[in-house]
Amino acid sequence: MWKWILLAVIVIGAFFLVGIYNALVRLRNRVKNAWSQIDVQLKRRHNLIPNLVETAKGYMTHERDTLENITKARGQAVSAEGMADKSKAESALGGAIGRFMLVVENYPDLKANQNFLALQEELTSTENKIGFARQSYNDQVLFFNNKIQMFPSNIVAGMFNFKAGEFFEIEEKEAREVPKVDFS
């Protein structure tokens, strides 16, 4: 009798274990898939920038610094490894692009260039896609991390060495800093 009960407990426990393990794997794959979505868009942005700089060069003779900054930031973003480095490099690149777009306002000839307009649309769209993909990636990471930390799935996660996912944050400095007011 006791044998049977013990057996039943073991079988049920095994089923639970398998279920939790599979759920964890499913969530981890979702995180991976969401990351690849971001990666596609980041690569797209990297590919757009040389064209953009090339088009702008002819018009923006006085803005050598801005253009060099963009190229440098792109190089760093392309070679960045690991989530933390990538987040940092990509937000730096985003900042450089933002400054570039502000400067563009001073060059009406450039803004009228058909080629540049098309590039600008592609760049805006890519930025948006990165934003939306980042949002869904962070959602997936949140689900996965919750599952890893909560009982009882945390036991299974510990047994099979599931590691918590990293969020992909992009710092928006302008949004967080309090604007300085100068009355002098």
Binding site: E121, T124, S125, K129, S136
Partner: peptide, 16 residues
Amino acid sequence: HPQLFNIVEEMKIAAN
């Protein structure tokens, strides 16, 4: 119409 196409793709990503 590149813009329309891009926006549809953006929303496709946003809506998963």
